[in-house]
Simulated assay, not measured.
Amino acid sequence: MKNRTPFRSACLAAAIALGGFAIVGCTTTPPNAQGAPRADKTSMDSQVDATLARLYNVVPGSREMVQKAAGVLVFPSVVGGSFVVGAEYGRGALRVGGRTTDYYSTTAGSIGFQAGGQSKAIVYVFNSTEALNKFRASNGWSAGADATVTMGRVGANGSVDTQTIQQPVTSFVLTNVGLEVGVSVQGAKINKVTL
């Protein structure tokens, strides 16, 4: 009986290690998708174009919203994995006036009993010039701490609702299934990077 505690500890450690290896392969990113950390400027810009086209297809009214916005920050592939402690990472591009101006990385963490991994695209729409300027002037921007980020919502008519458009910063989270509702991006840390 006394020797069971070390045995249990060894089994738990082995299970956590195996779970960590399993997480590496758990993603909803298609097999031919290029990982965000390896992307160069041309590849990143192509991925941003594809993500925006998908957003426009999935969320009616989002194209007009992005066109009227001061800027849009697109992370085509934010890959996350977790067992007990989770982490997410991705790279993306900021577009102002339809042109890429800078590149950024996003990181986020979580703690809790969760297992699995996934890939998603995150789009931040800066609806006001003030919000965009504040973001660009920051040295490491945190969603929720440096600005309130509202989740994009679709109204009863199937298009982006008017309240979403009026917020300074709006986020949309896309998975392979479509628009993910109820997902918070609060706490995500965004930093400028060089590709």
Rank of each mutant, 00 (worst) to 15 (best):
T162L: 09
G178F: 00
R95K: 13
T101P: 00
T27K: 09
I23W: 04
Y104E: 03
I165G: 03
R38C: 03
L94Q: 08
R38S: 09
G178Q: 04
F126Q: 09
A143V: 05
S82G: 15
E180Y: 04
V173P: 09
S105P: 03
R54L: 03
F21N: 12
A121L: 02
K68I: 08
N191S: 06
G116K: 13
K41N: 06
M151I: 05
L55I: 11
M65A: 15
V193S: 05
P76V: 06
T194D: 06
C11I: 15
R54E: 03
R136L: 13
C26S: 12
N3G: 11
T148V: 10
G152V: 03
Q47F: 03
K120P: 02
A70H: 10
S128P: 07
M1G: 13
V181W: 00
C11H: 07
Q163I: 05
G90Y: 04
G61F: 11
L12N: 05
A50W: 02
F83A: 11
G116Y: 14
K192Y: 01
K68C: 12
R38W: 08
S119C: 12
T170P: 04
K134S: 12
V125S: 06
A36K: 01
A188R: 05
A87N: 07
G80D: 06
G187S: 11
A188G: 07
A22R: 02
A145V: 09
N32R: 04
G92K: 02
